[in-house]
Design a protein around this nucleic acid. Structure first.
Length: 372
DNA sequence: AACACGTGGCG
DNA sequence: TCGCCAAGTGT
């Protein structure tokens, strides 16, 4: 049950309990999201579908709400339940995930669905420990699903909440060392009657008010007791260790086409960068300066014509790819790969870097066309 | 404990 | 144009 009047009043006077004004703000200003149950429903005990909460949390890892929405809708349309996802073809899941990035998330998503369906009777565990034992679910997601889908008193800490807390308490310790202290601050502020709404309120605050740059402190519901607001130093937090410079790697990509417009594709190895995704044949990606006119890595001899270059930035390196194109006979063999017809190409499990390479050689080839 | 792991938007 | 950054996890 909720706290007594007296304890709420006492808590609000303390800089360490900001949960009541935060929740009051959330009740009025929460974002409307496809996977979310609004506070007027959670307040009467209506909780969101754990499958949808879990799916959204996996998609939202290091990914913006705007990027996730259309993927989320497509996934729940194709696979409305965890059992449906468990029964899906992994290749179809990778195709549906293509473009979202961090592809190990999709592989683990599928494994997790299979485990929940086979070993948990299709129901997600409601505890942090039970959830964290599943593939692709770490500290954050275990706490978030437990709190949001099951209203368990879990201390949820994501990037938004790290920012809010380090500002509230002017925590000078750099991330990730500050993580334990942040977790402790969240745990002591956690309102046990509304843990799910509290987590989502903190994230909404971080996403819309307590933003990385130009925080809107004048609109913030918890400025009372915020030390960074008092000092005018909010934008300094969180303190982070300096990041290392990104190396540049170079390589070549080969877009082979047939007379009917089909493009030669192949599958990458299941592990590592872009693991299990689809690609056009290419060279290794190395730091070497050559490659601009180097077709020695071509999958077979052909009249390879330079078709431009593309640049793509990954998390820990930048890539410059020289793109070559050649027309092959209609009966040319596909080797380890396959010929993808023009109407199939947009639906392939092509990561963005590969779509860029193909677009450089054949403009428009990977774009989904509306049927007319 | 570091490092690998994608992508698109924003100032 | 370019660096920063977004609801992190696995190894």
């Amino acid at each position: 049950m909720a706290r007594t009047e007296a304890s709420v009043t006492d808590a609000q006077a303390s800089s360490t309990d900001f949960s009541r004004p935060l929740l009051a703000w959330y009740d009025r200003h929460h974002r409307h999201l496809p996977w979310r149950t609004p506070p007027h429903e959670t307040l009467v005990g209506v909780l969101p579908d754990p499958y949808r909460v879990w799916l959204s949390e996996i998609m939202l890892q290091q990914t913006t709400v705007g990027a996730v929405k259309s993927y989320f809708e497509a996934f729940v349309e194709a696979w409305p339940t965890v059992e449906a996802l468990a029964a899906a073809e992994t290749d179809d899941v990778m195709k549906a995930w293509a473009g979202l990035g961090y592809y190990s998330r999709a592989r683990n998503l599928k494994k997790c669905a299979e485990t929940v369906a086979a070993e948990h009777g299709g129901r997600f565990p409601d505890t942090e420990a039970g959830l964290k034992a599943l593939p692709g679910i770490g500290d954050y997601t275990a706490a978030a699903v437990s709190a949001i889908a099951f209203n368990q008193p879990a201390a949820v800490v994501d990037g938004n909440i790290e920012r809010v807390i380090t500002r509230l308490f002017s925590i000078e310790t750099p991330l990730p060392q500050a993580k334990p202290e942040i977790r402790a601050r969240v745990a002591e502020a956690l309102p046990h009657d509304r843990p799910g709404d509290f987590a989502q309120a903190m994230m909404d605050l971080g996403a819309t008010i307590c933003t990385p740059r130009k925080p809107a402190c004048v609109l913030c519901p918890i400025t009372e007791g915020c030390t960074a607001r008092r000092e005018g130093t909010a934008e300094r937090f969180p303190v982070k260790a300096p990041k290392t410079e990104k190396p540049v790697r170079k390589g070549a990509a080969f877009v082979a086409t047939r007379a009917d417009g089909a493009v030669l594709l192949r599958q990458r190895l299941p592990q590592g960068l872009l693991g299990g995704m689809t690609e056009v044949p290419g060279s290794q990606w190395t730091a070497r300066q050559d490659g601009a006119s180097d077709t020695t890595a071509a999958p077979f001899p052909a009249d390879w014509q330079a078709a431009g270059a593309i640049r793509h930035v990954f998390t820990h390196f930048a890539l410059e790819l020289s793109v070559f194109r050649a027309e092959l006979p209609q009966n040319a063999p596909a080797g380890d790969g396959w010929w993808s017809a023009p109407d199939a190409l947009p639906g392939e499990a092509l990561p963005t870097v590969m779509k860029k390479a193909i677009e450089a050689a054949i403009p428009g080839a990977t774009k989904k066309r509306r049927k007319g």
